[in-house]
C-alpha cells in the first residue's frame, strides 16, 4: 500500500520516510539472496549447489563478511578451515557478487542487497 505513495520518492529517501512515518508495511524485513557453490565448493555445504536464504534486515546491514560467518554457523558441513581463513575465504575459493569478482566490490565489506547472487567457486586444476 505504501508503494503507491512512494512511487515518485527518491530511492535514497525511502527508508528515512519509512522510519519517520512508521509506515513500514512492505516487509523490508527479509533480505533474500541466493547462495551458490561450485567447482567442488558445494561439497562443503552438503553437496547442495544452490541455497536460497533470507535474513532479517530491519535495522541491520549484512556484509559478505557477516555472510561468511553465517555460512560457517548454519550450512557448513565440513571443517571451518576448508572454507574460512583469517576472516575471509581460504585461498583457492573465488567469491562472485552478481557475476563479478568480489575484489571489484570491496570484498568482505560489500553490503548485501535483496536478490543478490553470491557465488563461491573453488578453482579447478584438473585437465
Amino acid at each position: 500500500m505504501c508503494y503507491v505513495s512512494l512511487r515518485n520518492v527518491n530511492i535514497k529517501n525511502i527508508s528515512n520516510f519509512a522510519f519517520q512515518t512508521g509506515y513500514f508495511l512492505i516487509s523490508m524485513a527479509d533480505l533474500k539472496i541466493a547462495l551458490e557453490f561450485g567447482g567442488g565448493a558445494e561439497v562443503l555445504v552438503g553437496n547442495q549447489k544452490v541455497h536460497e536464504v533470507a535474513f532479517p534486515s530491519k535495522n541491520k546491514v549484512w556484509t559478505i563478511g557477516d555472510l561468511l560467518y553465517w555460512i560457517k554457523d548454519n550450512i557448513l558441513k565440513e571443517r571451518p578451515e576448508l572454507f574460512l581463513q583469517d576472516g575471509s575465504v581460504r585461498p583457492g575459493i573465488l567469491v562472485l557478487v552478481n557475476d563479478a569478482d568480489w575484489e571489484l566490490m570491496d570484498t568482505v565489506n560489500y553490503e548485501l542487497k535483496s536478490n543478490d547472487r553470491i557465488v563461491f567457486i573453488s578453482t579447478l586444476h584438473g585437465g
Binding site: 567447482g39 585461498p91 586444476h125 584438473g126 585437465g127
Partner: peptide, 29 residues
C-alpha cells in the same frame, strides 16, 4: 581446467589483464 562436470577458462597476461597470481596470490591448501 576441468573436473567432474565443471570447467573453467580464462586468458591471463593479455592486454594488461590480470595473471594467475593476481587472482590467486596464495596457493590452495
Amino acid at each position: 581446467s576441468a573436473l567432474q562436470m565443471e570447467g573453467q577458462l580464462t586468458v591471463y597476461h593479455h592486454n594488461s589483464g590480470p595473471c594467475y597470481r593476481c587472482l590467486f596470490p596464495v596457493p590452495p591448501p
